[in-house]
Amino acid sequence: MEIPSKIGKYKILKKLGEGASGCVVKAEQEVIQRIVALKILFSSLLEEKPLIIKRFHREARLASALVHPNIVPIFEIDECNKMHYYTMQYIEGIPMIDYIKSNSIPIETRVDIFIELCDALALAHSRTIIHRDMKPHNVIITKEMHPVILDFGIAKSLIEEEQMTQVGHILGSAHYMAPEQAGPGNVGTYTDIFAVGVMLYEMMTGQRPFQGNNVKDLIMKRIQYAQKPDLLRPPSMKEINHEIPETLDSIVFRCLEANPKNRYQTAGDLLKALQQFRSEFCLTQTLDSEQNPSSLSVAVNKKASYFYPCLLSILLFILMISFSFWVYYGKQEFLSKAKGLQDIGSNKIQEVVKKITKK
C-alpha cells in the first residue's frame, strides 16, 4: 500500500510497522504541531471483507474506552479519500519483542513490567473486554521501563451480541494462542491469561514455551496440547534459567494450563499473584544480602573509609595547636597545657568513632 505524504490534517513522517490489515505511521498534526501515530486500514481489503471496517471501528471504540497509563490513548477515528484511519498517542520506546532479547535485565524488573501490563489488562477485563491477541509485538517498552499496550485489533466485548468472527476463522497469533482459540472452545478473559503466560515465559527465558515449524504446525500442536497436556508440557523455566524462583515458575505454568478452568481467570487474579511474588522476592533478596559476608565486608570497609580521614584530620589539628602553644608560651607553659590538649583530642576521637559506628 502506497502511503500519501498527507492524510487529512496529518503530515506523514515515516512508516512504523505493517500488519495483515493495515499499517501504522508516525505523523504530525500540523495545526497544533503534535506528533501522533496513525493506524491506517488497507483500502484493498474493504471490498473483499466488508466486516473489516466494522471491526476497525470497533477496535478504536473499545480501546478509547480504556483510560489507563499502560494503554495507548486513542484520539479520533476518521476517513479521508476512502482511507480509514484512527489516531493515537505516539509512544517512544522499543517493542517488547526486542526487549526480550536482552539478558541483562534483573528478574524483578521483568516482573514489574508484567505487573503493569496485567494492571492494564485487568481494566479491560473489568469492562468485559478480552484482547485475544496479546503478544510482545503489541507492547512497547518506554524509556522509563513502562509497558504500553498498542493494539486492540481483534479485541472482543463479551456483552456484545453481534458476531463479527466468521465461522471457522481463527483469530490470534499462533505462538501466543490459547488452545480454545486454535480448536473448539469458548474464548474468555482466561484466553488472554494464556497469552500473557507465554509472554512471561519468553521474557524470563528468551525462548517460547511452544515450538513449531509453521503456523499450521503450531495450531495443530496447540490442539494436541489441549488433549494431552502432560505429554506436551513445556520445560520449566528453571531448567532454562536456574536463577528463576520456583514460585514464579508455578505462576507462569498456571497461566499455561491447557484447561481454561485451571488458569487464573482474569488479569486481576494474575496481577495479585505477581504482586505477592514481587513482595516475597524483594524480602528474600534483602535477607540474603544481610546474611552475605561479602555485604558485611563492604559495610566495614565503608565505615573505615570514613574513619581514617577523620582521625588524620584530628591529629593534624592537635599538632597545629601544639606547635602554636610551643611558639607562643614557651616550653614550660606548653607542658602545663599539653594535658588539656590530650583530653580534647581523646574526646574528639571518641565522638568520631561513635558517629561512624552508628552509620
Rank of each mutant, 00 (worst) to 15 (best):
M88Y: 04
A65G: 11
S126T: 01
T109W: 00
L117N: 10
P50G: 03
P136E: 08
I129N: 00
H125A: 01
K49P: 01
M83P: 02
P73Y: 03
S64C: 09
M145C: 08
L121T: 02
V67L: 07
E108G: 01
P106S: 02
M145K: 14
C80G: 00
E59K: 09
A122T: 00
S64N: 11
S64D: 08
T87H: 08
Y90C: 15
M134T: 05
E144H: 04
V148W: 03
I107R: 06
Y85Q: 11
Y99M: 12
E108L: 10
R58E: 07
N138V: 07
F75K: 01
H68N: 10
E79A: 06
R110C: 07
I149M: 11
R110Y: 04
S64E: 13
K135L: 03
E48D: 14
P95E: 14
I115C: 03
P73M: 04
P95V: 09
I94T: 13
F56H: 08
P73K: 07
Y85F: 15
I113A: 12
V67C: 07
H84K: 08
L51T: 13
Y90V: 12
P95M: 14
C80N: 08
K49W: 09
I77F: 03
I130V: 09
D98E: 15
S102M: 10
Y99D: 14
P69N: 11
I71V: 15
R61G: 08
D151S: 01
E79K: 15
K135V: 04
M96I: 06
L66D: 08
I130P: 06
I94W: 02
Y85R: 13
I94P: 03
D151P: 03
D151G: 02
I53H: 03
I107Q: 02
N70Y: 11
E59F: 08
L66A: 06
L51C: 00
I129L: 00
D98S: 13
D112E: 14
H84C: 11
G93L: 13
K54E: 15
S102K: 12
I129V: 04
Y90R: 09
E59I: 04
R132N: 06
